[in-house]
Design a protein around this nucleic acid. Structure first.
Lengths: 132, 132
DNA sequence: CTTGACCCTATAGTTACTACAGGGTGCATA
DNA sequence: TATGCACCCTGTAGTAACTATAGGGTCAAG
């Protein structure tokens, strides 16, 4: 299959597929006589893996670790579990941070009296008086 | 005050202060004879505003809009409220997304049997069988 | 008079793509 | 046969919001 078909099948943009190849995340494809990339089912599987992991928020770095690990079937699954668990912890942290931030922003907005900018509570809250 | 003092007072890195100046978010400071930047309380106030808004997750683009708006004190506060509210909606969306993602990742990790990579449920879940 | 903390500019690197510019290929249709 | 269109190619630059580095200058203390 050509790059457009692979892209469509995995919900990736064509440029992104070429980008993954460039950084070595996706192996080079064979080429047709017209120099078009020609992909097989192994590429499809690998790119699906990549997209799915990206959807779950794994970084490309974590991903390439996972891909390396997944190649050695005999190895203990511990390292894989570790990467995933650390990722989960990061997500929890992010949710916490965003929730805190949300309530604060909500508070700021609630104070809005819909007057002029001169009396704007939002700007006032954001701009604390200089300590001078 | 010199750049280091301003940075410290606002919890910013020196390089970031210079960066804000370069992109026009922070006005140019006066210079000493030694060509050092010399800041006053107006710079301090503005940088505090910037940092606080950044902490609340506003982009630099939204920020420069807010700063422009805040200069015209007679204007209606509506536009300010609008920017903040749209930002809040984005945060809510992000929290939702992360929460969904979290539960999915949690499910994936829970399936881990701590065996070898060959049986790893984490990798198995991430890599769906090619449609072939 | 030298050491160390601070300051300067300019440029490149980071993440994960995305968007050109400027060209080639392959198939269907007028 | 020509031509239009969708698709493919490479290479480079742009995005956000900094961070880091190289290669220098300044100033006060010991």
């Amino acid at each position: 299959m050509k790059i457009g078909a692979l892209a469509k099948a995995t919900g990736t943009k064509v440029e992104t597929v070429r980008y993954y190849e460039k950084i070595g995340l996706l192996p080079r494809a064979a080429r047709t006589t017209a120099n078009y990339r020609d992909y097989g089912s192994d590429h499809l599987a690998r790119l699906s893996f990549i997209r799915r992991a990206r959807d779950l928020g794994f970084t490309l770095k974590a991903l390439s670790e996972l891909l390396t690990l997944s190649d050695d079937k005999e190895q203990s699954c511990e390292a894989v579990d570790d990467i995933a668990s650390r990722h989960l912890a990061k997500i929890d942290q992010k949710i916490d941070d965003l929730t805190t931030l949300r309530s604060e922003l909500d508070r700021v907005i609630s104070a809005c009296q819909h007057g002029t900018v001169g009396d704007c509570k939002i700007i006032e809250t954001l701009a604390p008086r200089p300590l001078s």
